[in-house]
Write a protein that binds this DNA or RNA. Structure first.
Lengths: 285, 285
DNA sequence: TAGATTGTTAATCGATTAACAATC
DNA sequence: TAGATTGTTAATCGATTAACAATC
């Protein structure tokens, strides 16, 4: 591990764990920042319907949060509402946009134009909120030159020149996991200071660089956890007696299993739901 | 809002806001559950390199968290380590897999086979961890019948039959935003109880249904917020004097602006970085 | 003025972290 | 035994929430 580099997993919403990230900027908590885009989206929809004002209760419902939280969040931005009336939709759209930095244009490069990179290049929500695809980049000569979303795919060699000439500060990584760190290093070296990582890789970046990650596999695993819990509750089946045994018994069993050099192998291809994990691979006979 | 339905935004990591979600299952905090997949990924990499044991410090580094947090997380699962030695890699892979429900197979349907649905269907990480694509579905007749990732795209009409016959409990929504709620309703009605939503829509689901969302646009906006802050710090430029003014002054200005019927319009197409938001649209002359 | 709704307070809850006793 | 490392404790920090005074 290089000194002065933080492994900023800097993942989802709060995660104040990420060591050196200044958890609040100008006093706005991370959790609030993460909700501002939700409010903005709901407000934009109201704006399109020409709704002039909205109460915290209505807006909270539209954004999927509770109104106390919303009012608290807005209180960090300032006093933008009117007691007894609510919030001016247009005005709040502007204030939140400004707070999020969306009143300026953010050129973005996407590196790795496989299926996912292609999908992102075509993603409408990209352009709609101040983000502009400055370039699509790939290392594969058979992909370079193709066009995606009306833009040519350019070779990685051009990365530095593009980042510098177009003042790109945000990079999106959609490469295979093996290439992600290397691409990240080049982006950072070229001057990118914010990275959105779709590769299932923990990126190491210098201080001052923000990394957020989007990880399909992790999301599914979290759902599976809750799904399993639901199934267990409803059928009454759950862990084996042994796994529910009190600490000492369990520890002794663990020792046995380790001593046996147990090789764990998740069971695959079994019918779903109501299937117990096959313990035979790790349980002593 | 229908009674008995919760708008479970149930977004990223902690978000204990989500009203009725039982925030811990068998005592495992949500924040810990969300990190288990990270540990599992790091452990799997060690396993592939045939590393027999790992310390909390090493594993924490590989997963991008600190070791105190990792040990605390593992303490919720049980006592699976050996003091003075560390953790048995294979054994821990198995225990975490089991905890996450990955020792069983989870059939998944993907609804909406545009660019993103296509990308997900091809996503390797899908199959690798107990998730199996049971079907790809789309409402568009010109898409139905195409094949993606070796599977035929089937018509939405088949949704209910597929969910029931294959015991699908997890659905992935990659439709346009306008169709998402309707698709969600059908999935839930058919028996799906976990939904991963890629559409930028707040989904309303009955109690007992988990929703997680992945939202590219939100991630980029959060990055933009921090990026703007960095730019402001380094150049000393930031808000206008007025916007930094103390409460009462700001409130008075707000009132003026509202009275003027200000129309906010984010400024687009401007050169990036170092551009101030154009306030002319919302500021009184 | 009376009703409505914000902005803030204070209590509660959950997550993080450092430190260290337990123990391999 | 001595060194290493876990599992747990307790303090701290940040986020959520209900309630209500301020005020439109």
């Amino acid at each position: 591990m290089a000194i002065g580099r933080s492994t900023q997993s800097t993942s989802q919403t709060p995660e104040p764990g990420a060591a050196r990230r200044p958890s609040r900027a100008r006093g706005i908590p991370e959790a609030t920042v993460a909700r501002l885009p939700l409010y903005l989206r709901a407000l934009t929809a109201l704006s399109e319907r020409s709704v002039p004002t909205v109460s915290s209760e209505e807006l909270a419902t539209a954004a999927g949060v509770n109104s106390a939280k919303l009012r608290k969040d807005f209180s960090y931005l300032g006093s933008y509402g009117t007691r007894g009336v609510g919030y001016d939709v247009e005005y709040l759209v502007y204030q939140i946009s400004r707070e999020l930095g969306l009143t300026q244009d953010w050129p973005v490069v996407i590196v790795g134009i496989g299926n996912l990179g292609h999908a992102l290049a075509n993603y409408g929500g990209f352009a709609s909120r101040g983000f502009r695809v400055a370039a699509l980049l790939d290392a594969d000569p058979t992909v370079v030159g193709n066009s995606a979303a009306g833009l040519p795919v350019r070779h990685m060699d051009e990365l530095e020149a593009i980042v510098e000439s177009q003042h790109v500060s945000i990079g999106v990584i959609t490469t295979p996991p093996g290439a992600a760190q290397q691409v990240c290093d080049r982006l950072v070296e070229a001057g990118v200071t914010s990275i959105l990582n779709f590769a299932p890789t923990v990126l190491t970046v210098p201080d001052g660089v923000d990394v957020r990650k989007v990880d399909l596999s992790i999301e599914l695993q979290i759902l599976a956890f809750h799904e399993q819990r639901k199934a267990g509750e409803e059928s009454g089946q759950g862990d084996s007696m042994l796994d529910r045994a009190p600490g000492p018994v369990r520890a002794a069993a663990a020792k046995l299993r380790r001593a046996a050099g147990a090789k764990a192998e998740p069971v695959k291809g079994k019918p779903a739901k109501g299937t117990e994990g096959d313990l035979s691979a790790v349980m002593p006979a």
